[in-house]
């Protein structure tokens, strides 16, 4: 069994975007350009995240997913603003394989239970956004905008008890900074977690990525900007479709990207089982 490398694609107005600590998004380009390149380079899964979930946004998301699923044959997860079972049904009917729930699950845990009963544990993933407040990890919702007044570890315990198959933890502080995953946090989470654990937020130095697999025994890692910054160069002069916005280019020194193949080869040579 291989460890999974997941690419996370944050979508806003039909455009791939990326922020820092879940804020201040920059436009990077057409999602299809990136997803095709990632598929070609052996990405294991893709996670599309709807940054602002209104009905209008959702329809644009549906178009992206449908286009994507015609050509890309790896697991596609979608999250961001999913509130009811009809939306889950619709997503699965247009080419999505796994749904990711955050705010709606915090608001109503019975919704998560219902989803597990209908679709099975492995189709339902819960994304938990967390940050330290007064030296304690708390849960956040609405893409990091709102405190949920929930203790992180208590919520993880509850989600696990409901029978959800996978928990993606987003460390808000580290997110988008490429400085490395929070090893201590994920080590602590893993101690009492038997379902699939995905680390998200901060992917950067490859030594740290190796460490999160070796020290925290996570099942998967989710990566956004580290991959985006590598592949965005090739798309620099391409016109963006469906948007009048422009690509806010990063300073050359800011761009510290890595290709999927480079990361996988490094992990494999260091003893982590990955698909190549």
């Amino acid at each position: 069994m291989n460890k999974r490398i997941i690419s996370r694609l944050d979508i806003k107005n039909g455009i791939l975007v990326k922020g820092i600590s879940l804020e201040g998004v920059r436009n990077l380009g057409e999602p299809g350009f990136f997803s095709k390149a990632y598929y070609k380079d052996y990405i294991d899964e893709m996670h599309f995240h709807n940054v602002i979930a209104t009905l209008y946004e959702s329809n644009m998301m549906f178009d992206i997913i449908e286009k994507n699923s015609k050509e890309i044959f790896v697991n596609v997860s979608v999250g961001g603003g999913i509130k009811n079972i009809n939306e889950v049904d619709k997503l699965l009917r247009i080419g999505v394989d796994k749904v990711v729930i955050n705010s709606a699950g915090v608001k109503d845990p019975t919704f998560l239970k219902k989803l597990v009963e209908v679709y099975g544990a492995s189709t339902i993933s819960v994304n938990i956004e967390t940050a330290k407040v007064n030296n304690k990890y708390e849960v956040f919702v609405q893409t990091g905008r709102e405190r949920a007044n929930l203790d992180l570890f208590k919520w993880i315990e509850k989600v696990q008890k409901i029978g959800v198959g996978e928990i993606i933890v987003t460390d808000i502080f580290s997110e988008g900074k490429n400085k490395g995953y929070n090893i201590n946090l994920f080590k602590k989470i893993r101690e009492n977690l038997d379902c699939q654990l995905v680390a998200h937020g901060g992917a950067g130095p490859k030594e740290n990525i190796l460490e999160i697999f070796q020290e925290c025994n996570v099942d998967a890692i989710s990566i956004a900007s580290l991959f985006h910054y590598h592949y965005v160069k090739q798309d620099k002069n391409k016109e963006l479709k469906g948007s009048n916005s422009y690509v806010h280019f990063l300073d050359e020194k800011e761009k510290k990207g890595m290709s999927i193949l480079e990361l996988k080869k490094y992990l494999k040579s260091s003893g982590v089982k990955v698909r190549l």
Partner: peptide, 19 residues
């Protein structure tokens, strides 16, 4: 089974991934 023959937890369930 998440346990091995000696009753020690060795696996996470569900299985998700490539093999």
């Amino acid at each position: 089974n998440i346990l091995n023959d000696k009753g020690i937890k060795v696996r996470n369930v569900p299985i998700i991934g490539w093999s």
